[in-house]
Design a protein around this nucleic acid. Structure first.
Lengths: 345, 345
DNA sequence: CTGAAAGCGCTAACAG
DNA sequence: CTGTTAGCGCTTTCAG
């Protein structure tokens, strides 16, 4: 129907090193049609050995780099996966990311990431922004999102993976562990060892919902034993911080000298608390027991390994990514956790 | 366990189309041309208040999410920035990333990342892969790359930022600090304090070139004083590891009981070594001095803060990203480093 | 096995 | 201020 005046049809000159090399350049240089080049470059469809080699040679000579933007638009199948993480500094996130990334890479996917900084509103904006790149999957942390964020994730026709937590309602695929149960297990462990006057050192609960769930579980068990957390101290920091644990610990002990155990919202804080004890000659676990969460490498290598709970973080990322790409049904996978009794309790 | 919502497609007024809402739908619904919609949605060009609102309303009603893939192709200006990092687990990378990400986000850019795992060949592949998304900038770690990787970065017409190191020749923009100088400064510091029998505990030098440069600088100074590193131990781990430092330290001391100081390739290893000493009653710094590299938070919060060198990592990422986006000339920025005398030397 | 042609959804001149 | 019209570079029928 529409025809271009012949004089406007200027096939790109293969020897033209100015603009970017396109598939058309390769085609022209190899003396074949564009579609054939496309077939060869994607290893799709059958092409004679001869032309294939001709094309490969031309592409190499021209230093051709395919334009995936164009490819994605044309095929409307993207090799992009969106990832929204709460933070990069956190020790947990990198491990989950590493597991996921390994799978994604093997499958030829490229992650587009956004960092929400534990802010749901920011997360919402990032999700929208990332969705506009038309990824074929989206990974987010946790189950708590703004209403609009949930709506977008539900309605965008893209597979969604929610990681790290199973306590709540998911959108599509959920891979994580129960933080409430982890909190319960921690309390049960400490109580079984005879500790009764237990304090808590945590960080900002509003931003780290999962730490809040652990505390909730911990409290539940205490109440079931007609006990309560003796005192608590919250570090103002968002997320983990050794310094926060150190200070929180100092403050807590200043107020309560009779505690026999302290439960920390995570290992970073616990290590801070541990250092405080080391420095102040507080004997562990005799004077005071410590319990963390995460199972960080460093916490297992201190002179006295920290009692803590570990989750299979790398596996979480791996499994999640596999499910995201596999096209299976929506489901929840609880990867569980492992309580590691250390020398601090 | 859970079931997939029966249908994703929620198009309030999908009179004639299947699939996702496009700009054309919005245009039709608002009764205007596509280009007008485009103008409004991008806040570009002038549109009457009336039609603008009509369009915004239509877009909202249809839950329109723009397709940036199409936009990028059409305008051939991408809001993607490629980032290739050696690892996610490393403490250094997240901080640089955080600095860079803050700038990128403010400017509306989305990072596409790849993890090379300290493997130059993998890095090369990632660079090619990421370049195929036609980003408007590319950030990589360090100055050492395969020849082909360098060629691609030079020839792709995209601004390139090399981070973390300035000892060598850069491609375009370089933001980092001198590792050789850091190594030299470390040696000078230890020598000035009177230490002479100095051992070294490091990790795989071939993968972490920058650690190798530090060691080189350290050795230079030793030689200038007619001294040599007494003994060394290499952890097989790629990158940092507390465990590696612990084991390396143990092995080193087994062989050499007369050392008076140990230089570590980074703080993670140094902390491992420190823990070994704590546990084995080795008095620091009287029996043995320790020196690291990185200035990690945790290394400054141990009962005895570690002597180490710190670089402005977040600032590095920030400055680098700013330069990458600003369109300025190619240049090298040495952000310097700070030697932090701790209590371990 | 290969090429021609019709878009993918959006932007960017141009006209009006 | 607004619509029309070509493409962006690639994939994908669909003929040959």
């Amino acid at each position: 129907m529409t025809k271009l005046p012949p004089q406007f049809i200027t096939l790109p000159d293969a020897s033209d090193h100015q603009g970017v090399v396109t598939l058309a350049h390769v085609a022209r240089r190899a003396g074949v049609g564009e579609s054939t080049v496309s077939r060869v470059l994607r290893n799709h469809g059958s092409v004679s050995r001869q032309t294939r080699e001709k094309i490969l040679k031309a592409a190499a000579e021209l230093h051709y780099v395919p334009n995936r933007i164009a490819g994605t638009l044309a095929s409307s199948t993207s090799k992009l996966v969106g990832i929204v993480i709460p933070s990069v500094g956190n020790t947990v996130v990198p491990e989950v990311l590493a597991g996921a990334n390994a799978v994604l890479e093997d499958a030829g996917f490229q992650p587009v990431i956004g960092v929400s900084n534990y802010d749901p509103v920011r997360e919402e904006a990032l999700i929208e922004s990332i969705l506009s790149w038309r990824p074929s999957g989206l990974m987010v942390a946790g189950l708590e999102h703004t209403d609009r964020a949930r709506d977008m994730m539900k309605g965008c026709g893209v597979r969604v993976l929610e990681l790290l937590d199973v306590d709540g309602e998911g959108i599509d695929i959920v891979v994580g562990s129960s933080h409430r149960e982890a909190g319960r297990a921690s309390a049960e462990f400490l109580l079984a060892r005879g500790y009764r006057r237990i304090g808590y050192v945590g960080h900002d609960m509003r931003s780290d919902v999962r730490a809040g769930k652990r505390l909730e579980g911990f409290r539940q068990v205490m109440e079931e034993h007609n006990l309560a957390i003796a005192d608590h101290e919250f570090s103002p920091d968002r997320g983990s911080s050794v310094q926060g644990g150190r200070i929180g610990m100092a403050r807590l002990l200043e107020r309560r000298r009779n505690l026999d155990a302290v439960y920390f919202s995570n290992d970073d804080l616990a290590i801070g608390g541990y250092f405080h004890c080391l420095e102040n000659g507080i004997s562990i676990p005799d004077d005071l027991a410590l319990f963390g969460y995460n199972g960080l490498e460093i916490a297992r290598l201190t002179p006295q390994p920290l009692s803590t709970i570990r989750t299979p973080r790398v596996a979480m990322g791996r499994i999640g990514a596999q499910m995201l790409l596999s096209g299976g049904p929506a489901q929840v996978i609880d990867v569980g956790f492992e309580l590691i009794p250390g020398a601090t309790s």
